[in-house]
Design a protein around this nucleic acid. Structure first.
Lengths: 113, 113
DNA sequence: ATATCATATGAAATAGTATTCATATGTTTA
DNA sequence: TAAACATATGAATACTATTTCATATGATAT
């Protein structure tokens, strides 16, 4: 069930790996942070994050493939919305983890800035 | 707070990114799966997963840096233990996510290039 | 139907991360 | 303290994922 397996082309199939792998990217974290506030179109996101449109499209595509975001058409825009049900509790767990287990790392961080 | 920042050497500092990035690796998923059952030494893990020792040491080192595992010395062995408090609920959320949102993706995945 | 706006896609270039291998460090036992 | 065992580390290489850029597709308004 949670073992590593491979598809016919040798690609890894494990859900956890695909899920974490999808989120292990700074731009995607920024997208999620933005979409936590409210749903946005691609160009609206591009404006807020100051990144190129096609870069966003690629990132949104993989987030969509994992159902981390969903999209709806609105005129000629495509509005991306965060699947909060999954993401929010995970981010909260990570916040608690950081506070509980990484307090020194955080001190380390602020001392360095 | 949850924005992307960089340390003095240009390394990204965001917690979520570091956390997900650390887990976005098949070997680390296998390590976690093994350590869910019980704590193990490096060589015990190497035996179970059939991977080389130094490969494991590298992987365990980064898991330790994120407090996803902790280690204790026992004779000449170092016993690695999973920090279940953080990981277990996250994996459960991902399981639910997969069941609820990715029933089609599973088919999709195998079709992917 | 065409022009325009909005987004997606493919492929090559690039950046980021893991693996490998040789070797170093640490711990116990004889 | 030397030998054996267990693990860690650094650096080069191999891999994989992202970025970029040119272009394609889809939607709407005229």
């Amino acid at each position: 069930m949670n073992t590593i397996s491979y598809d016919i082309r040798g690609k890894i199939m494990n859900t956890y790996y695909l899920f974490f792998g999808n989120l292990a990217n700074p731009l995607k974290i920024e997208i999620i942070t933005e979409l936590k506030k409210k749903p946005l179109s691609v160009l609206e996101l591009a404006g807020k994050l100051k990144v190129e449109q096609s870069k966003l499209s690629h990132a949104l595509c993989s987030l969509r493939n994992c159902s981390i975001v969903q999209v709806r058409q609105e005129g000629k825009k495509r509005i991306y919305e965060l699947n909060k049900e999954t993401i929010m509790p995970i981010l909260e767990i990570i916040d608690r983890h950081e506070n509980k287990f990484c307090s020194e790392c955080k001190a380390e961080k602020s001392r360095r800035k």
